[in-house]
């Protein structure tokens, strides 16, 4: 029960229900749909690059609080980072959720996204937390 309250905390709730990152970008460089067929969650991620730097990002779509908040907080974390830095952070987040990364120093680079740490103990919700991160991983790998 404590885990639940940890996951559904103020930060995650705000981002999930009223995210300022939920909007459309003008002329994004990349746009990609992420989909969880089991629960029907669907997000569209948009990215604008400035050379090697993620200049702006936004998302649209629908899903549970965890998938929506994870998307929004991911955007906050990755905006302004270089693509190499972003790839490193994405890997760390995915590893954290899979319980393969527990080093506190490494986890610090996740900034607010560390709030999803307890999702690693909720197997039913792992996919929700990872949806956006796998989607952006796809975009960056395709580049």
């Amino acid at each position: 029960m404590d885990e639940l309250n940890d996951v559904y905390n103020e930060l995650i709730m705000e981002h999930s229900m009223n995210s300022y990152n939920k909007k459309k970008l003008e002329n994004p460089d990349y746009s990609e749909i992420g989909h969880n067929p089991n629960c029907g969650d669907e997000i569209t991620l948009e990215i604008k690059l400035d050379g090697n730097v993620i200049k702006d990002m936004a998302f649209s779509g629908h899903g549970c609080a965890i998938s929506q908040a994870s998307t929004s907080i991911m955007i906050d974390t990755l905006k302004g980072k270089t693509i190499e830095e972003a790839k490193e952070i994405i890997k760390t987040f995915i590893d954290m959720i899979k319980r393969e990364e527990t080093d506190e120093e490494n986890l610090k680079k996740l900034e607010d996204a560390i709030a999803f740490r307890n999702v690693s103990h909720m197997p039913a919700r792992v996919k929700c937390a990872l949806l956006a991160w796998h989607t952006i991983e796809d975009i960056l790998n395709k580049r």
Partner: peptide, 14 residues
């Protein structure tokens, strides 16, 4: 209304 069923089911599970 306004809450995703997956979140509701998780809280009920708790």
């Amino acid at each position: 209304k306004g809450v995703h069923p997956h979140d509701v089911a998780s809280i009920l599970d708790g």
